[in-house]
């Protein structure tokens, strides 16, 4: 079944023809060529695919493209204000070596930003670790990811993002 979808991705209006079964992550990667969002599992557990839909973090591998009709979508590609001006969360990941192979990173960053906002920029280590339940990383051992998120929270607050 071929269906038209239209949504806003990183501030730009986009549209396309998809099958009902097309996942949102497939729409982003295969139709729009935005390959920053990754797929790391088939059971909705790894979080490599996390993006924001209408301001909330979701697993784009567990949403149909048609469910995002009319939605505002933000992906990893839409975070940095410019190539030289990273989002404070991206900056904190870099400063704290919170990524190695980079595969989990887009989902981690998107989950982390949502986490910081939901907790009103106030987090402690235990909360960060618990909130990362939906994001797997095989490289970093999480130590530096936790550090980065704790560092980013005040930075996001002062940057007003």
């Amino acid at each position: 079944m071929s269906i038209s979808v239209a949504m806003t991705v990183n501030g730009k209006a986009v549209s396309g023809k998809v099958e009902a079964r097309t996942l949102l992550v497939q729409f982003l990667r295969e139709h729009l060529g935005m390959t920053g969002t990754h797929v790391g599992c088939d059971t909705s557990q790894c979080g490599a695919c996390v993006i924001h839909v209408d301001g909330k973090s979701v697993k784009s591998c567990t949403m149909l493209a048609v469910q995002a009709e009319g939605a505002k979508v933000t992906t990893i590609e839409g975070l940095a204000a410019s190539p030289d001006k990273l989002h404070p969360m991206q900056e904190a990941f870099r400063e704290n070596h919170a990524l190695q192979c980079g595969f989990c990173t887009p989902g981690m960053v998107m989950s982390a930003i949502d986490m910081v906002k939901r907790h009103n920029y106030q987090l402690d280590e235990a909360t960060v670790r618990r909130e990362l339940e939906g994001n797997l990383c095989r490289c970093t051992g999480y130590h530096n990811i936790v550090k980065a998120i704790l560092a980013a929270a005040p930075a996001m607050k002062s940057a007003g993002v």
Binding site: M34, G36, T37, I76, Q90, P106, V109
Partner: peptide, 8 residues
């Protein structure tokens, strides 16, 4: 890092 952090 830059390319990984920006989805590139």
């Amino acid at each position: 890092d830059k390319r990984f952090l920006t989805g590139n």
